[in-house]
Design a protein around this nucleic acid. Structure first.
Length: 424
RNA sequence: GGAGAGAUGGCAGAGUGGUCGAAUGCGGCGGUCUUGAAAACCGUUGAUCUUCACGGAUCCGGGGGUUCGAAUCCCUCUCUCUCCGCCA
């Protein structure tokens, strides 16, 4: 969420910048401004009355100790007016504070200047294309057919056990998954990330901290009995490690990586987008998260993009990197790069990673700060994260792109992890 | 699931109605001493809101109440720990 003071001091800027996200903030910002002024007025009145009350209470205590009962009782009578007034002011304050907060959380993050204008995915900017496109010829099979041909993934069994979108991986299919997870984690650890194994369920506070709640409630599986949410990404528990934390400036950047299963309800998805591995309710992903000094966060974003690029290159997949346009970006992001790999049988690009700088948007919610070395004061940090990588679509592309008449070739980098070089 | 205990500053831990944003210890920071370091000693060390500033207000798990006055008393919720049961 955006800082209140920042909104108050830069209303025009906020409105102008949010236009790029196709968000008309003028009404909300206007209301916030008005309420904020009122809030300050109430607070200053309340503070004054409270100060008087505190003073009076001390005097009464003093009188009692001196045994001046009568004087004390006279003074007591004067407090009742103050008391009522405090109660009223506190109520008004709480109400208006709540109103401001509700408006505040409705404002999306401000996109950074690099973000291209646009409304739909077609407006995203392709910043780089890499890897070799393969020509599979006539007999190419989509990954779901390959998965069934080599008995790697059983979608029907998943339906039997749970429902659509919960595939069962078998044999070399399962081992390939495990190999990818290990490969990705090793690469991240080598790049200096600390490996974390987070809980797969989080509470409401954590959901709020990273921005899933309150708005995207419907995207997460909710265990109502215990009021816990299944994580849609390891970003949620890992970033929330730093909720309500003030870190030393010298500990920045903090680099964490985590493998986790991810759970998404994907309400509203339908059609051929959900075929095979293209869109699942449960999938595996390795995530990288960083907590950064504000001055460094954009350099770090580039570093993270380079890390993810290294992964797809090592896997030998044709890829492209997109800079998301204002209309396609998430609510919380200031700048996002998406990675897509080309799935040669489906003949389409599949999103496999999203790397974002949230600047202080999450950190404001999280109360995640670092202590400035000069001023010794807490300053809100920046947070970033990226998939490195999400497995299903990587698997889809690997199966499709590497298919031959004799079987599916496994990328060399994965062979040490899975123990075979061909699926046949 | 049953029974009990507890939640205080970075950590440990005191505080059962006013002088308590809170003793003390550890840790952190600055200094003295030292060739340097350690030890010792001295000082310092929470956050938020508000104000140009002085200052003021709020915060002892969350919410509510009693009182002139609450970390302290009452109600309620949440969470944690211990023991028993069950169990990977």
């Amino acid at each position: 969420m955006l800082n209140l003071r920042f909104i108050q001091e830069n209303p025009e800027l906020v409105i102008e910048k949010l236009k790029k996200k196709n968000f008309d903030a003028s009404e909300i910002v206007g209301e916030i401004s008005e309420l904020y002024k009122k809030k300050n007025e109430i607070q200053s009145s309340a503070d004054q009355v409270k100060a008087e009350m505190n003073k009076l209470s001390k005097e009464i205590g003093q009188l009692f100790r001196e045994g001046k009962q009568a004087e004390a009782n006279v003074a007591k009578e004067r407090t009742s007016v103050l008391k009522d007034s405090i109660k009223q002011l506190d109520e008004d304050f709480a109400k208006i504070d709540e109103q401001v907060f509700e408006l505040q959380v409705q404002l999306p993050n401000i996109p950074c200047d690099l973000v291209p204008a646009g409304k739909t995915p077609e407006d995203n900017e392709i910043v780089k294309t890499g890897g070799e496109m393969v020509d599979l010829g006539e007999n190419k099979l989509p990954h779901w057919e390959l998965a069934s041909k080599y008995d790697l993934i059983d979608f029907e069994l998943g339906v039997k056990l749970t429902g659509a979108g919960f595939p069962v991986y078998k044999g070399k299919g399962s081992r390939l998954q495990r190999a990818l997870i290990n490969f990705f984690l090793n690469e991240a650890v080598e790049a200096g990330y600390l490996e974390i194994q987070p809980p797969l369920m989080v509470n409401e506070d954590s959901g709020f901290g990273t921005g899933q709640l309150p708005d995207k409630e419907g995207q997460m599986y909710h265990v109502t009995e215990d009021n816990l949410y299944l994580i849609p990404t390891a970003e949620v528990p890992v970033t929330n490690l730093y909720r309500d934390v003030i870190v030393d400036a010298k500990d920045l950047p903090i680099k964490n990586t985590a493998y986790s299963a991810c759970f998404r309800r994907e309400a509203g998805s339908y059609g051929k987008d959900v075929r095979g591995l293209n869109r699942l309710h449960q999938f595996d992903k390795v995530e990288v998260v960083q907590v950064a000094h504000p001055d460094k966060s954009y350099a770090i974003l580039d570093e993270m993009v380079a890390h993810v690029e290294g992964l797809v290159q090592k896997l030998g997949l044709p890829y492209r990197i997109l800079r998301l346009c204002g209309g396609d970006m998430s609510f919380t992001s200031a700048l996002t790069y998406d990675f897509e790999v080309y799935s040669a049988a489906q003949e389409k690009w599949l999103e496999v990673s999203s790397v974002s700088n949230f600047e202080s948007f999450q950190a404001n919610r999280l109360k995640l700060r670092y202590r400035d070395e000069q001023t010794k004061k807490p300053v809100v940090a920046h947070t970033l994260n990226g998939s490195a990588l999400a497995l299903p679509r990587i698997v889809a592309a690997l199966l499709e792109n590497n298919q031959t008449a004799d079987g599916i070739k496994v990328p060399e980098v994965l062979v040490p992890f899975c123990g075979f070089d061909t699926i046949n």
